[in-house]
Simulated scan of single mutants.
Amino acid sequence: MATAKGNATRRRIIEAAAEEIRERGTDKTTLDDVCRRSNTGKGQLFYYFPEGREQLLLAVTEHEAARVFDDQEPYLSQLTSGSAWTAWRDLIVKQYRDQGLHCPLAVLIADVGRYSPDAQAVSAQLVTRWQHALQSGIEATQAAGEGDPDLDPKLTAAAIIAAIEGGVTVLLSTGSAEHLEAGLNFCLDRLLVKTRPRAVHSNQG
């Protein structure tokens, strides 16, 4: 049975591995690097990850996928209006601009998320869960009269995720969040219904 201390040690190993991968990449990160960074020995590492490197990389993938999702809360669960979408957009852009190469999504896109079929499955589950959350937000915004009713919620959610992942990919190669912000702005401009001024009817004449 896992103890609180054991869970903390396991988490420390996973976080150390994630930090090493962000800085050095999967191919250049060794188990010795992880042990050094987490202040653990090989015996401890193999106790929690008896299958070694592959099992640890899968745990890192799961950890980073959870971070991508959790870092968006509480905004992601409250996408019911134009102002809520704008707040969420601002959070996404700021987080990825600030985190840069060290953002969890970058690790998934550029590294561990495509390292093995199991890691790809974790990334696919993240995208599915993320798309469902965005789809629910789009549907709620449409129901509130603030979202374009002609848009397909599922396809629009997929486009938003594509804009984010594409923007982060450009961020990784250029250091600029400009494309990420532009992509999200384009999606939100298409999604949100612009408030039109009411016509003024004159009773004169």
Results as ranks from 00 to 15, higher is better:
residue 9 T to S: 10
residue 203 N to K: 11
residue 124 A to R: 08
residue 184 L to C: 06
residue 100 G to R: 02
residue 148 D to P: 06
residue 85 W to L: 08
residue 5 K to R: 14
residue 1 M to D: 15
residue 144 A to L: 06
residue 152 D to N: 09
residue 97 R to F: 02
residue 44 Q to L: 09
residue 108 L to T: 02
residue 99 Q to I: 01
residue 59 A to T: 02
residue 201 H to S: 13
residue 47 Y to R: 09
residue 23 E to Y: 00
residue 50 P to R: 11
residue 113 G to N: 04
residue 78 Q to S: 13
residue 22 R to I: 05
residue 41 G to P: 04
residue 124 A to D: 12
residue 107 V to S: 12
residue 194 K to M: 14
residue 1 M to P: 15
residue 63 H to R: 08
residue 70 D to F: 10
residue 72 Q to W: 01
residue 193 V to C: 14
residue 69 F to M: 12
residue 138 I to N: 01
residue 27 D to T: 09
residue 66 A to M: 09
residue 169 T to V: 10
residue 93 V to Q: 03
residue 59 A to S: 10
residue 36 R to A: 12
residue 88 W to N: 03
residue 75 Y to G: 11
residue 20 E to R: 10
residue 16 A to T: 05
residue 116 S to C: 05
residue 188 L to T: 03
residue 181 E to L: 07
residue 147 G to C: 08
residue 7 N to S: 14
residue 7 N to R: 15
residue 19 E to N: 10
residue 109 I to P: 07
residue 162 A to G: 14
residue 105 L to C: 06
residue 128 T to R: 15
residue 57 L to A: 07
residue 158 A to S: 13
residue 182 A to I: 08
residue 175 G to F: 00
residue 54 E to V: 11
residue 29 T to R: 00
residue 170 V to W: 10
residue 1 M to I: 13
residue 194 K to P: 09
residue 178 E to Q: 11
residue 84 A to D: 08
residue 105 L to W: 03
residue 128 T to C: 12
residue 24 R to L: 09
residue 159 A to K: 07
residue 45 L to Q: 02
residue 66 A to P: 06
residue 47 Y to M: 10
residue 183 G to Y: 03
residue 188 L to R: 00
residue 168 V to C: 06
residue 6 G to K: 04
residue 147 G to M: 09
residue 126 L to S: 07
residue 147 G to P: 05
residue 12 R to D: 15
residue 97 R to M: 07
residue 53 R to L: 03
residue 17 A to P: 03
residue 103 C to E: 07
residue 138 I to S: 02
residue 36 R to G: 08
residue 56 L to A: 07
residue 66 A to E: 12
residue 8 A to W: 06
residue 188 L to I: 01
residue 147 G to W: 05
residue 69 F to T: 09
residue 75 Y to A: 14
residue 56 L to D: 07
residue 72 Q to S: 11
residue 153 P to G: 06
residue 109 I to Y: 09
residue 184 L to Y: 01
residue 141 T to A: 07
residue 198 R to V: 12
residue 142 Q to I: 07
residue 70 D to N: 13
residue 141 T to P: 07
residue 67 R to E: 14
residue 93 V to L: 04
residue 16 A to N: 06
residue 79 L to F: 00
residue 171 L to C: 03
residue 199 A to W: 07
residue 137 G to I: 00
residue 169 T to E: 14
residue 40 T to D: 04
residue 1 M to C: 13
residue 63 H to V: 06
residue 4 A to N: 11
residue 49 F to V: 06
residue 13 I to F: 00
residue 16 A to W: 02
residue 18 A to C: 05
residue 138 I to V: 13
residue 53 R to W: 01
residue 41 G to V: 04
residue 161 I to M: 11
residue 39 N to Q: 12
residue 70 D to G: 09
residue 35 C to V: 03
residue 54 E to F: 09
residue 161 I to N: 14
residue 114 R to D: 13
residue 181 E to N: 10
residue 159 A to I: 01
residue 136 S to D: 14
residue 168 V to K: 01
residue 178 E to F: 12
residue 159 A to Y: 04
residue 203 N to I: 11
residue 84 A to R: 05
residue 144 A to F: 06
residue 16 A to P: 07
residue 56 L to R: 00
residue 41 G to E: 06
residue 150 D to P: 06
residue 154 K to V: 13
residue 74 P to C: 01
residue 112 V to I: 11
residue 133 A to D: 11
residue 78 Q to R: 12
residue 140 A to Q: 10
residue 63 H to E: 10
residue 123 S to I: 05
residue 194 K to C: 11
residue 108 L to V: 08
residue 158 A to C: 06
residue 183 G to E: 04
